Amino acid sequence: MIQKQFIPNTYKNTIEKGSYTWSSPSNIALVKYWGKKEHQIPENPSISFTLDNCKTITTLSFVKKNTDNFSFDIFLDGEKKDDFKPKIETFFKRIENYLPFLKAYHFTIETSNTFPHSSGIASSASGMSALALCLMSIEKALNPDMSEAHFIKKASFLARLGSGSACRSLEGDLVVWGKHKQIDGSSDLFGIKYPFHVHENFKNYNDAILLVDKGEKQVSSTLGHNLMHNHPFAQERFKQAHDNLSNLIKILKTGDLKNFIDLVESEALTLHAMMMTSMPYFILMKPNTLEIINKIWSYRQDTGIPVCFTLDAGANVHVLYPEKHTEKVNQFIKNELVVYCQNGHYICDKIGFGAKQL
């Protein structure tokens, strides 16, 4: 699938060497995507909150070379990581049509996360979006007439080819990825800023990430997505995601916290239900995941505070709540939920507004 709009004609400038640094955040989906077609195309649309504190900072240095191959070194927290190379090489091969300068330079990729690497937070979204932005900064220098809108759209398009959810990390505070009939401009090829009115209730949301299990996932996201191909409930799930996104448009407009909670928690549990009913089947939740969910339900019922949970494809729990309830919810987390976190670890985050060039 060659997307002509992203293939440059010629470059006006030449550059011998240089360096760019971007920070890009992680994100947490409210309506999940699970299942993808060829070329990282999602089976259904998704929408996410962009996070603020959980981010990747990447510096991309480059110098002209003569050999006709991909040439790069990658460092995480100052330590050389040759085991990351196959993933980056796959990414470069996917995007070479769109960035024809890739074989003209040797790259040094220096990256670090503001969250611990083993924290169980997926760093592929923040990492791939930061790298895509650094590469686009090179293209912008080669072609200075490029508009800001094209820069962001193409960066999101490239990030998607590295990690699907990475295309939702460039902007904020809400980003839609995947074609949806009610959202003009939505696309399977890149994320776009959510274009509709958002009620004040959802303007200052917090996300406390409870680290139930910091280990490597037993099942890679790629394998998990592929198991949707012959899944008995796949088509119904894709339809449900479209319907939930339609419902969420109304919820975000009216500020309906109760229906927001119902939809977001249902989406999280549906994601895991798809994993449990695929073949082969798998369970990524841990006993402590369920303990936390039940505690949240009891606390919400007892206090009326609109706190809810969502989950990624793992055991960790994202606790979502409006900022004005921060003090009480933090006390609840310390008193009742920390005991279920590995080594008592959790991360306090909030809605953010996307990537920044440093």
Rank of each mutant, 00 (worst) to 15 (best):
I292E: 14
K214L: 06
Q235I: 09
D52I: 03
W34I: 04
S186F: 03
S156N: 15
D73Q: 02
E236R: 05
N343L: 10
G354K: 01
P144A: 07
F49A: 10
P8F: 01
Q301D: 15
K350F: 11
E291N: 14
K356Q: 12
S298C: 06
C167V: 12
N66K: 03
S220R: 05
F353R: 02
A208V: 04
N247V: 00
L269M: 11
T67K: 06
Q357K: 04
F6G: 09
W177Q: 03
T50L: 12
G224C: 04
P42N: 09
P8H: 01
F190I: 01
N69Q: 15
N204T: 06
E336A: 05
K217N: 04
K12F: 03
Y105L: 11
E16Y: 02
G164R: 00
K81Q: 15
I121C: 08
I296A: 10
Q331L: 06
L76W: 14
N97I: 03
F101H: 02
T58I: 14
G354I: 09
K350M: 13
T289N: 04
S71C: 15
N44E: 11
A268G: 15
S24I: 10
F282I: 00
E16A: 02
K32C: 09
K324Q: 13
E139C: 06
G78S: 11
K179T: 08
F332D: 09
I261V: 08
F6W: 11
H106D: 13
S61H: 09
F92T: 05
G162N: 06
T254L: 13
A273Y: 12
I347W: 11
L227C: 05
K140N: 14
N335F: 01
E236C: 07
P144R: 01
F151D: 15
T111H: 02
I95N: 05
H150Q: 10
E38R: 00
P8S: 04
G164Q: 03
L252A: 09
D188V: 07
Y33Q: 00
L257M: 15
S137P: 13
N330Q: 00
V175Y: 08
F260W: 00
K64V: 02
K193Q: 15
P280D: 10
A149G: 12
E216W: 04
M275Y: 06
L161Q: 12
K253F: 13
K103E: 13
E89C: 06
L337F: 04
P306G: 12
A208N: 05
V339G: 10
H180W: 08
K179W: 03
N330M: 00
F309A: 06
S118P: 14
G344S: 07
L189M: 05
L142R: 01
N69G: 15
F6S: 09
R94A: 14
N294V: 09
K217R: 00
N143T: 12
T58G: 12
Y281H: 10
I305G: 01
E200C: 01
S48M: 10
M1P: 08
P45M: 08
Y11V: 01
Q40N: 08
H318N: 11
L189S: 07
S123L: 09
V63M: 04
G354L: 04
Y281F: 08
H150I: 07
T114G: 10
I333Q: 05
E200I: 00
L51C: 13
I138M: 07
D256L: 03
M146T: 13
F260Q: 00
N13S: 08
S46I: 02
G255I: 03
F282C: 01
D52H: 03
T326C: 07
H225G: 06
C134H: 09
I192C: 06
D302T: 04
F353K: 02
V339R: 02
I283L: 06
